[in-house]
Amino acid sequence: MIVFVRFNSSHGFPVEVDSDTSIFQLKEVVAKRQGVPADQLRVIFAGKELRNDWTVQNCDLDQQSIVHIVQRPWRKGQEMNATGGDDPRNAAGGCEREPQSLTRVDLSSSVLPGDSVGLAVILHTDSRKDSPPAGSPAGRSIYNSFYVYCKGPCQRVQPGKLRVQCSTCRQATLTLTQGPSCWDDVLIPNRMSGECQSPHCPGTSAEFFFKCGAHPTSDKETSVALHLIATNSRNITCITCTDVRSPVLVFQCNSRHVICLDCFHLYCVTRLNDRQFVHDPQLGYSLPCVAGCPNSLIKELHHFRILGEEQYNRYQQYGAEECVLQMGGVLCPRPGCGAGLLPEPDQRKVTCEGGNGLGCGFAFCRECKEAYHEGECSAVFEASGTTTQAYRVDERAAEQARWEAASKETIKKTTKPCPRCHVPVEKNGGCMHMKCPQPQCRLEWCWNCGCEWNRVCMGDHWFDV
């Protein structure tokens, strides 16, 4: 396979590697080409510095992935760790964990309700045991953590790749202090920090972006993250068709209702045909949960890209028209025109101005929308079919299609509260000796007794199943 190397943020060049090629071997190839010592090179990928003893497969490097290699003399205490030698983080029983690669970060837990604080980093599902597709590297999971809308060759929703760059020099040479644990960490600028490894760059702020994971991409090709779309790892039924499908869209209502993408497309087109989208002054033209839940309008309007190009163009047109109407304007009634106009409040005669090729020149009556006339309008008909009709959803289907309910059931079956801080902690095999993952707590306690870890627990039921 081919990976592209950008040395000291210059133009990239291809390097041929195998899945079992080590990072140090990659350094040696680059060092020979650039005429520099291999031990002064640092390989940066997806916000993480890659260790010498890791392989291309370990690092989730795919065909035509772009890695950054910078030349920086080692500072005291760094060289041993980078070589894969006596790194205290690798000691058996050590409590410190390697910062998780962005290629394996899962933010789907952050669609849980606000009262489930902490689960994004504490609760991990076991539903990723799908067998890898044919042709994928051994052991590589097909679980997708992110979804994007690819405006490039795909023109559809695709699995996405999370990447990070330095907000100062805009190069992907920043190593994160810690990985993101929720969508806010990724979507809110300057929320996460790190250290830029580019020479002479003092940058410390992280800037995240997404790429389409279905095809090789260049540095400049980015895609918009659709953070309401998630892999259906909890096997929730769709609120409309009641099938279990994946991926799904999880509405931001209190129940976190789930809808499959085909039904979401149908829901949007139906509402669009009836012009029953909601115009929100802050958000724009949007839709609420299909069950009509309060405070559930979709905030990231790129989710409506699921409509496809033709329907999305209609959505944008109707949204612009609705904006004009909300501002007190009118639409030209001549067939084939429909231009938005903003006449004076007491102006009865409205002319669709033909300047700049935008208007048709038609003069019409503001009251009856017919060709302009003197005197009273002959008839004014009330528009028919403008009443909002509820999208029919079966109550039982709505009850079963809740992301929140599956989460709470998982928590109930696989977790116990920490005796000190009461945060839910998952036990997935292993011994009875637990350690609270909350940095402010870190209590060592017994899963069996529910009390602080002691010699009695150690001698009596340390390794009970």
Rank of each mutant, 00 (worst) to 15 (best):
residue 405 A to M: 13
residue 339 A to I: 13
residue 199 P to L: 10
residue 284 G to H: 03
residue 216 P to E: 12
residue 314 R to I: 03
residue 124 H to M: 07
residue 86 D to H: 09
residue 343 P to T: 09
residue 94 G to S: 12
residue 117 V to I: 10
residue 417 P to R: 10
residue 14 P to H: 04
residue 295 N to I: 03
residue 224 V to Q: 12
residue 266 L to F: 11
residue 462 W to N: 03
residue 47 G to C: 03
residue 20 D to G: 08
residue 368 C to E: 03
residue 311 Q to D: 06
residue 110 S to V: 07
residue 364 F to C: 03
residue 26 L to W: 00
residue 91 A to P: 13
residue 186 V to L: 07
residue 75 R to P: 13
residue 412 K to A: 10
residue 34 Q to N: 14
residue 223 S to P: 10
residue 129 K to H: 12
residue 215 H to E: 03
residue 451 C to K: 15
residue 62 D to W: 05
residue 267 Y to P: 01
residue 211 K to H: 15
residue 281 P to Q: 07
residue 244 V to S: 05
residue 243 D to F: 10
residue 10 S to M: 11
residue 432 M to G: 03
residue 129 K to R: 10
residue 333 P to I: 03
residue 69 I to Q: 00
residue 296 S to P: 01
residue 277 F to P: 02
residue 417 P to E: 14
residue 194 G to S: 06
residue 450 G to R: 02
residue 450 G to D: 04
residue 234 R to D: 05
residue 423 V to F: 11
residue 177 T to S: 14
residue 347 Q to I: 09
residue 283 L to V: 13
residue 240 T to H: 06
residue 142 I to S: 12
residue 363 A to K: 14
residue 270 T to C: 09
residue 228 L to E: 02
residue 60 D to K: 15
residue 293 C to E: 02
residue 260 C to H: 01
residue 298 I to V: 07
residue 251 F to P: 00
residue 241 C to H: 01
residue 428 N to W: 09
residue 51 R to M: 14
residue 22 S to L: 05
residue 431 C to D: 04
residue 102 L to T: 10
residue 441 C to T: 02
residue 377 C to E: 03
residue 268 C to P: 00
residue 414 T to E: 14
residue 339 A to H: 09
residue 152 G to D: 14
residue 40 Q to W: 05
residue 325 L to S: 04
residue 10 S to I: 04
residue 261 L to G: 02
residue 13 F to M: 07
residue 242 T to K: 12
residue 438 Q to G: 04
residue 138 A to Q: 13
residue 106 D to S: 11
residue 10 S to K: 04
residue 59 C to W: 02
residue 97 R to S: 12
residue 461 H to I: 01
residue 6 R to W: 03
residue 42 R to K: 08
residue 226 L to E: 01
residue 91 A to V: 12
residue 404 E to L: 10
residue 274 D to K: 03
residue 302 H to D: 15
residue 194 G to L: 05
residue 348 R to G: 05
residue 151 K to G: 15
residue 436 C to W: 00
residue 16 E to W: 06
residue 182 C to F: 04
residue 168 T to A: 08
residue 181 S to N: 12
residue 110 S to P: 13
residue 376 E to D: 14
residue 422 H to I: 07
residue 428 N to L: 13
residue 10 S to Q: 06
